[in-house]
């Protein structure tokens, strides 16, 4: 049976632009045949979903330097290929990085699919439930980047 791709978008929508990942997930909807998960943080049980996927696209907000925040939109949506990270999180509490999640999937289930990280550079992470206007304008571009990665031959 063909394994579906997986999108994991995470962040806190009550912390301004930290909700960019969730906004990208909403824009994607279910149109691409992918499983879409939206969460506040990356927790270990997601490793089972990761291991069951053909590929994984993580979507998050990132805080950049002031200079980069004013850069062209193409530079404010970034795509990176992820590798399994073997360094172990000694002080783990409740949250993991995408690389650690891939390592968990590999260790527990023997497989870690190809994985990518799409980030949207945020401006404001204060307590508020909305994205800043400029970040809102980046969401369609980020969703298109995710959609390209979900295609059979992703081009990061």
């Amino acid at each position: 049976m063909r394994r579906p791709p997986l999108v994991i978008a995470w962040g806190n929508p009550l912390r301004g632009d930290d909700g960019a990942g969730a906004a990208v997930a909403r824009t994607l909807g279910a149109r691409r045949g992918a499983t879409v998960r939206v969460c506040h943080q990356l927790t270990p049980e997601l490793a089972a979903d990761v291991a069951a996927a053909s590929r994984v696209v993580f979507v998050d907000a990132e805080a950049g330097s002031t200079g980069r925040r004013t850069a062209a939109p193409t530079r404010r949506v970034r795509v990176r290929r992820l590798r399994v990270r073997h360094a172990r999180p000694a002080g783990f509490t409740h949250a993991l990085t995408p690389e650690h999640l891939l390592a968990l999937a590999k260790a527990l289930y023997g497989t870690a699919p190809p994985a990518f990280l799409v980030t949207v550079m945020g401006e404001r992470f204060a307590l508020r439930p909305e994205l800043s206007p400029s970040v809102r304008r980046l969401i369609p571009a980020a969703a298109r980047a995710v959609a390209r990665l979900l295609a059979p031959r992703p081009q990061p």
Binding site: Q41, P89, A90, F92, A95, L96, E99
Partner: peptide
């Protein structure tokens, strides 16, 4: 000293 976890948030 114990280094902080690599976790993001």
């Amino acid at each position: 000293r114990r280094d902080p976890p690599g976790a993001g948030r």
